[in-house]
Design a protein around this nucleic acid. Structure first.
Lengths: 231, 231
DNA sequence: CGGACAGTTGAATCAAATCAACAAACGTGG
DNA sequence: CCACGTTTGTTGATTTGATTCAACTGTCCG
């Protein structure tokens, strides 16, 4: 039942400039350290919209840094339903694994530029450089933190709360808290929030009716102050 | 709305023997390394049932290794509802944080013995010893992995599937896959699975009716072969 | 212009929550 | 060891929020 997507990943020369919309969180120096490392050790790839980056069960050989674009981490069930565990935006790192194989797959939500390093190279570098090890450590913990928050949402929140919280979180992570340019489809949102597409759509309509948000296009949403306060 | 619990954490002399029911996962050597470290650097504490170990917002100064007993990681919402992010059993480590403060609280599900080390001591040791750093790394990734699985459950699974998956997972982690001695209450299960207590109870009754499980007491459940296969 | 997606809206259905009672297990003190 | 109160777990009736099924609208792109 999985969507057929074009596998179109081409290599590109690595570039030196920092990603434009990165750097969420307090550890700017750590993040810079990691970006430098990816630029030194890694190579760049470009993925077009919906291209797979790695599949579930695939050998987990590489780790990825998002330069631009958005990536989704997902898992498919037998019946074709999909759960999106999270999204990664510019500056985020994804793809490290506990085991030798990926437990989830990664796909490009929008066209993406990524930097890729071999997992072994990263681990070696981390073993030599304590600062780097600590940066990776912070990153994993931040991810744990994000997931914990999301579990609360999935376990306890109403459909409207899930959608609102999602919009807020995307706004923060893309560094534009009041006008959010959503890179993913309603279906992606639904699969992330444990809802179905119709419910997501209805909740957006409902939040608009309440005056919590305003639509400036289906993928461009303005969050009203009141809604931002209630965080 | 939070339950009033007795704060009764006493110090105990450290002990050398390995925890009896530990060691899930392939990294036995890493786990041993961490346990040795906790015994060298840490001190032992005992918590009685329902005692808080740390609270949300509390400074995240320490990291904990479960010697025996069960710990729950939870978050409370304004309306008093609770989401349990996960449980920790003998051999598990919990309490590291991305920020300076805990984002969640930890409580003893049953009477517990824990080993505690200062976060700074652990980080220093990890900075000196690459092997140790890598062990911590593995641990965080395993936790990410577990959370991802749980998010799929919360987002997409029916009540019956959640309960069944939970019983299987507890069985595995306690190393008794077919007869599971559940250490937590139905309410704890409900708050972990994003269900309410009545639904958990009904699903257990339902699974019993289906022949997937058999009750040997409310907290002692036998998982039938068929149910174990369907993993 | 027309076909394919992506998103919205409506009506009917259903799974889980809620409200309410009851039963079983536990622990404490007589 | 048993009586009693408290906590924990189960079951039933009803309600409700989200899903499902279905139709329709808007938008992008050849």
């Amino acid at each position: 039942m999985r969507l057929a997507v074009l596998n179109a990943v081409h290599t590109l020369p690595a570039r030196r400039s920092a990603p434009p919309t990165a750097c969420t969180g307090p550890d700017l120096s750590h993040r810079q350290l990691l970006e430098d490392l990816f630029e030194d050790l890694g190579h760049a790839i470009v993925c077009e919209r919906n291209a797979p980056i790695f599949d579930e069960e695939e050998a987990a050989n590489s780790v990825y840094l998002v330069v631009s674009g958005t990536v989704r981490i997902c898992k498919f069930m037998e019946d074709g339903r999909r759960q999106i565990g999270g999204f990664h935006f510019a500056g985020d790192i994804f793809g490290f694994e506990y085991g030798a194989r990926h437990a989830f797959c990664a796909e490009a939500v929008s066209a993406c530029r990524l930097l890729v390093v071999r997992r072994t190279a990263l681990m070696d570098a981390a073993a030599r450089d304590a600062e780097l090890g600590s940066a990776l450590w912070m990153l994993a913990n931040r991810e744990l933190h994000r997931m914990n928050e999301h579990m609360v949402l999935l376990g306890r929140a109403s459909a409207a709360d899930r959608v609102m919280a999602f919009l807020r979180s995307v706004g923060e992570r893309l560094q534009s808290p009041s006008v959010v340019e959503i890179p993913m489809s309603r279906q992606d949102m639904a699969d992330h929030l444990g809802l179905n597409i119709e419910t997501v759509s209805r909740m957006i309509t409902h939040l608009r009716g309440e005056g919590a948000i305003a639509l400036e296009g289906t993928r461009r949403i303005r969050l009203k102050d009141a809604a931002l306060m209630a965080a």
